[in-house]
Design a protein around this nucleic acid. Structure first.
Lengths: 172, 172
DNA sequence: CACATATCGTCTGCTCCACAGATCAGTTGT
DNA sequence: ACAACTGATCTGTGGAGCAGACGATATGTG
């Protein structure tokens, strides 16, 4: 009986991890909408993310693409298989390194993505309809900045400064 | 071969959906860290979210809890089974409606969550280490606001004002 | 040049988890 | 009292992801 509750909500929802819940809710809603939009793509949301990364980021290799999206290599394999089958991307042997495959979008893939991007932009705008446009821009900018800083491969060592050992074992 | 597509799009600086990628990266990193922290809990990250919701939000019924976290009812059942087995929560029959179970945390559950919350707070702070404290607060506030507005069940009708019909049929 | 080691992509087997459907218990309306 | 509904649980199934092994290529070393 250390903390005897005052019978009722002691404090509003300020305590606890708001971030985790908010991220989960937003990503779930975003995924649901984008899933709805990119229903024709082989793997729905994931397919959109892959195609978007291929076109906009132009990752040098298949592994780099997988790493950026947090997808396993083996998954990326059969994912791109279907993409090739749908004439959205092509696998070309990199002449410099014949092990690697360069993933290049086809013309069809570009057109499809352009259309999807437009619709996704609208969906995102609707998703954040609770915020005034100014706040939407701020949120997007901060989100991108935070994600860039938190993405694996950026500055891993910063995490080692923590007292108790956290996630220093699993991720190599 | 840079995509020069003068069709409509004025080619904004960072085209493509930044939001989706950023949300995915942040949630993935958040989950990895919280997974590491709440390794003793039955279901890792999900377990933390459930326990957190039970304590902080005190949802009236099991179904409400599931809805808030976006978890299926059937999943919630065996999830709470393990939680009861670990003496973290209790299922009590609601005297008003004997079908419903009130999920109440045990004293042990409260203590465990308090400790986890502290560690998660530190992890979140580290996750957003790329932002200055001021921006962290802004991001958290906007995130919560956006999630509250976008969460299903809050104001669904606001979405119905859109021109083209999008996901107005599937979700209950 | 021969050899060892690392990387890239693919394939295989396994496990685990989420969703659908049926079921039981209890409530509400007429 | 009966029907219709909701809350929670149980069961079966399918798919998806991960670990591990494998062929192909590149690179470093003596």
């Amino acid at each position: 009986m250390t903390d005897r509750e005052p019978t009722g909500s002691p404090a509003p929802s300020t305590q606890g991890s708001v971030i985790g819940w908010a991220l989960a809710v937003l990503l779930r809603e975003w995924s649901a909408r984008v899933e709805d939009i990119s229903r024709d793509l082989p793997h729905g949301v994931r397919g959109y993310q892959v195609l978007s990364a291929v076109v906009h980021e132009a990752p040098p290799t298949q592994a780099a693409l997988a790493a950026r999206l947090g997808i396993d290599r083996t998954v990326m394999t059969y994912l791109l298989d279907k993409f090739e089958g749908c004439d959205l991307v092509e696998r070309r042997q990199d002449p410099a390194d014949r092990r690697a495959r360069r993933i290049v979008p086809t013309e069809h893939g570009r057109r499809v993505l352009a259309e999807l991007d437009a619709r996704v932009a609208r969906a995102e705008d609707e998703l954040l309809s609770g915020l005034v446009p100014e706040d939407r821009r701020v949120l997007t900018a901060l989100l991108e900045h935070a994600a860039t800083g938190a993405a694996p491969g950026e500055d891993r060592c910063a995490a080692a400064a923590r007292p108790v050992g956290g996630r220093t074992s699993d991720t190599v």
